[in-house]
Amino acid sequence: MIVQKLGANFNYVIATLLFCIGLFTVITKPNLIKKFMGLNIMEASVFLFIVSVGAVREGSAPIVVKGMEKGVQFVNPLPQALILTGIVVAVSTTALALALMIKLYEQCGTLDADELKGMEE
């Protein structure tokens, strides 16, 4: 029963799993780049979730073409537009983070969170 339910909503399950994996990585990994990769995984999971919200089984792309028959199921285009924006934001965040990490490495010579913590004092 539960398995069936999970199976039917496997996209949500995977989104949740990805979110948890990402969060785990962010919290536990000392290396800043790995931390940030964790964040990217979290972002991906959220995007997956949003796309799933608008998905329609057997739905086609929401593009109207000439001579299309009536009653065709479309997927909801709005979530797709949203994640497109979301991805742009995510990419710029990543770019900025990488730039910061380069700066950080130049300044402190390490990207290890524990070592950096020691340098703060």
Binding site: V26, L39, V46, T93, A97, L100, L104, Q107, C108, M119
Partner: peptide, 21 residues
């Protein structure tokens, strides 16, 4: 561009990005 600023910014970025998510 002083020594610890990048660290502070990164800390903010990490926490901030999660909150935005």
């Amino acid at each position: 561009g002083e020594k610890l600023t990048a660290m502070a910014a990164f800390k903010y970025l990490l926490v901030g990005a999660i909150s935005s998510l």
